[in-house]
Amino acid sequence: MTASHALVVSLRKSGTHLLKELMTRSGYSLYGEVSAGPGELPEPAGDTLWRVLTMVYGEEELRRLTGSEDRTAVESAVAEAVDAFYGAWRVRLGIPWRGPAGEAPPAELVARTLARGAAGRFADTPGGVCWFLHHLEPHQVDERFLRDWLDTGSPRILFNYRDPRDVLVSMVNFLSGESGRGVGHFTDHRLYRDILRTARNVGERLTIALTDPCFPGADAFERGLWLLRHPAVCKVSFEDLVGPRGGGSRERQRAAVADQLFNDRAYSFHRGRIGAWREYFTPEHEELFEERYGAVLDAYGYR
């Protein structure tokens, strides 16, 4: 992927760390539901920075800013504008803020940016950034973004998924503390971490996951069907990317332009193998899964 703008929709526990590696190696900075770390986004400059400033501040504010000799104040105002601009796009794309409240983009400036022409077009965002989302739903996304995407094909959207049985097992293990690195800032992760701790064994945890409609990611595959079916979306699976260390093949990995992407140090990583669900599912779990997700297996080609 060589475009200056990219957007990845990676279902939770579907190998998001592999896509992070791929996009980072392709020269992108990461933003959204995952990031490379604070301060690693490219800083807008020149015309791009000026566009950002005009979307955040009014004419009088811009005059004061450009005429100010207080460099510290100017740098602070510029940084707040950039944060507000990215924050406005989080809202437009339906990405909730999950980090510490003190690090959130300035709410007043975000609201003002959204009111001032909805922060422009996606093409106006700084280049070299790959936006990561765990879902992208037409009824929650800014309609202008979807219209522009349909008309121009930009940004290139990549949709990543995985065998939903392995996703379920991975989520259960993750929330049960098997990764040993916490459950992050997702509220539903924290809720179900506590619930799963009441179960006596992994079998009971799987039963909870298969019978609770609010379990994290329970409807993610259904909500992603439009991405799977749309001809302009680039589809890639965990099984394509993981390679031989995760039970896949080198040929399939190379075909997905993702050689050497298996990073077992990634946050939330547990085991990352194809077909691990067979070690955990009992016949009862298979029956429960078939009743609830049989159509999903068919749609995504995992039958």
Rank of each mutant, 00 (worst) to 15 (best):
P213S: 12
E69H: 02
A107K: 12
T282A: 12
V129G: 00
L62N: 03
V9F: 00
V110C: 00
T48Q: 04
E137C: 05
S4E: 08
R25P: 02
L136F: 15
C130N: 05
L49D: 02
R147W: 07
V257D: 13
E59Q: 07
G58D: 13
P106H: 05
F238H: 13
L191R: 14
G46N: 10
V183P: 05
H285C: 06
E222R: 14
G272D: 09
A81L: 03
E222D: 12
M171I: 08
A118C: 05
R278P: 05
L225C: 09
S176M: 10
G180L: 14
A45Y: 04
S14V: 04
P44S: 04
E222M: 07
D259Y: 09
V129I: 15
L30Q: 04
I195A: 00
V169Y: 04
Q260E: 15
G39L: 03
L288G: 05
F281V: 05
P96S: 14
A123R: 06
G294E: 04
S10T: 14
E108T: 12
S4F: 00
V74H: 00
D188W: 09
L136M: 15
A256F: 10
R156D: 09
A258S: 15
G117I: 01
T211M: 03
A73E: 08
D240P: 11
L136W: 11
Q260W: 07
D194K: 13
I157T: 03
T152N: 07
R273W: 01
L109C: 02
L133K: 11
P164Q: 08
W50S: 06
R197E: 14
H270D: 07
E291T: 11
L11Q: 10
M23P: 01
T66R: 10
R197V: 09
D124I: 07
T152V: 03
N263W: 05
P96E: 13
F145E: 08
T207H: 13
E103C: 04
L146Y: 02
E284L: 10
L30M: 07
S10H: 13
G247L: 11
G94K: 12
G117P: 03
D47E: 15
W89H: 04
E239C: 10
E204C: 02
G117T: 06
A256E: 11
W277C: 10
C130H: 01
L7M: 15
R271E: 13
D264C: 05
F132G: 01
L11Y: 12
R12D: 06
F262N: 04
R197H: 11
F159P: 09
K235T: 15
E33L: 11
Y192N: 01
A79R: 12
H17T: 08
A73T: 01
P96H: 14
D264S: 15
V202M: 14
L114N: 02
L19W: 00
V296P: 05
I95N: 12
G224K: 08
F215W: 11
L18Y: 06
L210V: 02
T152I: 06
L53Y: 00
A255M: 11
D142V: 02
A123N: 00
E33N: 14
P38D: 09
F159C: 12
V183G: 09
